[in-house]
Structures are given as structure tokens and as C-alpha cells.
């Protein structure tokens, strides 16, 4: 991957690390997080950010070998959070007004677009 042109700000890095831990199905060590994030991040940067997240009680850690393995903190109100998330989903699905104020990452695809998209993406994978 090409080098990053500007260093990520800490907020952005925190988000990426949280996203990384959320995607993982088990706790990750800082080294694993560093590998997963890709790019040219220093180990200490990852460790510092993880420690900061731990201070904020956003992540929990458990000893693994000489380091810690981190995972997302499962808040006590987790079932409640799930409920809110589903409420949001329901709003999105049923309510045009609500859906229109959110910007979603991608929209639905029809069959033709799907084929063109696969072609376009297929071309990028070959030379790499």
C-alpha cells in the first residue's frame, strides 16, 4: 500500500482500532492490531492508542503472554444498545424522512451494475 500522505489524527486512529477490534471475533494483541491495520503505523503508536482507549474504558484487556490482548468493552447496557441499534434500523427501513438525513456508505445494486462492478474491481486485483 502506498504510504500515507498525512499522518492520521488520533481520533481517526482510535476509530480504526475500535473498528478493528469490533471486526475481530477474539481479543487481539497490539502486534495483531498493527498487522491488521496495515500501512506504516509504529507499534508504539498502536500501543499508546490502545492504552488510551483502555483508560477511557472503551476496551478491556486480558493478559496474554508478556502483553495484553484487547477487545471491545461489552458495556453493561449492551442489550439496550442493541435495542437502540435495531430501533435505528427500523427507522431507516420504514421512515423516509429519517433515511433521507443519513448518508449511507453504499446503495443497493441492480444485476447489471453488479456485473460491471465485478469487472472493474477484477481488473484492479490482477497486477497486484
Amino acid at each position: 500500500m502506498a504510504g500515507r500522505q498525512n499522518p492520521r489524527r488520533s481520533g481517526a486512529l482510535e476509530k480504526e482500532i475500535v473498528a478493528c477490534l469490533a471486526a475481530a471475533r477474539w481479543p487481539l494483541t497490539p502486534a495483531q492490531v498493527q498487522t491488521q491495520l496495515g500501512g506504516d503505523l509504529a507499534y508504539t503508536t498502536v500501543l499508546t492508542t490502545l492504552t488510551r482507549l483502555h483508560t477511557k474504558q472503551a476496551v478491556v484487556r486480558e493478559p496474554r503472554g508478556r502483553a495484553y490482548a484487547y477487545s471491545l468493552a461489552v458495556s453493561q447496557a449492551d442489550s439496550e444498545a442493541g435495542l437502540i441499534a435495531h430501533q435505528m434500523q427500523k427507522l431507516l427501513a420504514e421512515d423516509v424522512d429519517t433515511a433521507s438525513v443519513l448518508s449511507r456508505f453504499v446503495d443497493t445494486l441492480d444485476d447489471d451494475s453488479e456485473k460491471i462492478l465485478r469487472d472493474l474491481l477484477g481488473r484492479t486485483q490482477d497486477p497486484r
Binding site: 481520533g11 482510535e14 476509530k15 475500535v18 473498528a19 469490533a22 482507549l53 477511557k56 472503551a58 471491545l72 458495556s75 447496557a77 439496550e80 444498545a81 442493541g82 437502540i84 441499534a85 430501533q87 435505528m88 434500523q89 427507522l91 421512515d95 423516509v96 424522512d97 429519517t98 433515511a99 433521507s100 438525513v101 443519513l102
Partner: peptide
């Protein structure tokens, strides 16, 4: 309608747990 939509999404989003402005939906 847009004002209503904004108010509703804001109130629901305010209840979602977040870290650095990111909410994960399991």
C-alpha cells in the same frame, strides 16, 4: 419532514454507545 427526521435520528443516535464518534452495531 427533514427537521423531524433530523430530530428523530439525533435522539436515537444519542443513545448509541460510542468511542471517538464511532458506534458499532453488532
Amino acid at each position: 419532514r427533514v427537521a423531524a427526521g433530523l430530530r428523530r435520528t439525533s435522539s436515537v443516535a444519542a443513545g448509541l454507545p460510542e468511542v471517538a464518534g464511532l458506534s458499532i452495531m453488532d
